[in-house]
Write a protein that binds this DNA or RNA. Sequence first.
DNA 1: TGATACCTGAGTAAATCACTCAAGAACATC
DNA 2: GATGTTCTTGAGTGATTTACTCAGGTATCA
Lengths: 148, 148
Amino acid sequence: MLLSTKGDYGVRAMIDLAKHAGEGPVQRSEIARRRQIPESYLDHLLAQLRRAGFVRSTRGPSGGHELVKPSSEISLLGLLEALEGSLAPLGCLEPAAGDDAAESICGQNWVWQEIYDQMRTRLAAVSLAELVEHEREHERQAVITYNI
Amino acid sequence: MLLSTKGDYGVRAMIDLAKHAGEGPVQRSEIARRRQIPESYLDHLLAQLRRAGFVRSTRGPSGGHELVKPSSEISLLGLLEALEGSLAPLGCLEPAAGDDAAESICGQNWVWQEIYDQMRTRLAAVSLAELVEHEREHERQAVITYNI
DNA sequence: TGATACCTGAGTAAATCACTCAAGAACATC
DNA sequence: GATGTTCTTGAGTGATTTACTCAGGTATCA
């Protein structure tokens, strides 16, 4: 599997922040509770997101985390790469791949390079705002189903 | 990373078998030497490929392994799935994904499902014969470069 | 000054990866 | 039918990664 829980939790935390944008800092304990993420683990993910420039945080009472940019300007690709590192399906497609990597599976890399490019292009076209919108849509569906 | 050395070694071994198709069984020691794969590890990969129906093997002196089908009828997708299991980038996209998986990162799965489908389609369109052809092409290039 | 909240690095149990090793089973040849 | 060759299988192992926890520390507010 290409994605681990880091990407999962991290993106979910960002969706949470996006949903509460403009309401002041959101505390990690709130995010952890709402999104079912272990709080002590979330710490590290928020730190990564902060270092990557997606999140700003303030300490002390009534401190917390908030988005630096509007959610429409944040791509899923950017988030996942910040959280997971490279999304390359093969070692030899990574930017820093050495010569020995090219000896290896990279006999097939003309196919994989193409797939990787397509993947990144698609992920780059999805914004955090769209993810939030999709979640809202999903919630509405759930309510409708429930009310029938 | 989505692919491990299993997919790498396994496909390389299959390329080797395809190149020597029609010449009788190829011994694992030959494959291991030519493709730089640890012999004792290759054992297990060949067993997987045999169970998946790609390879037939005969024991005893002058035994070895050979392709069951012509290389043009073997897709890269089939090989990689036989070797690596599912190529799903997320757990929740796997066939047997349970309900708890859907709760998780699968909030983004409309994107990933699309990417996964594209990936499988592309891999299904590449045959082992094409991989062999590409390797031959690459060898010719190397010879030309060397002769300049 | 003390309570609150973020920040950081070290540590750890469980799983996966990339193998190795050893014992066995089938087959060809002499 | 004895011998040696080759595949077959399962168990085991060290290194790495994953998914966390914990124990401090730092900044901020009241």
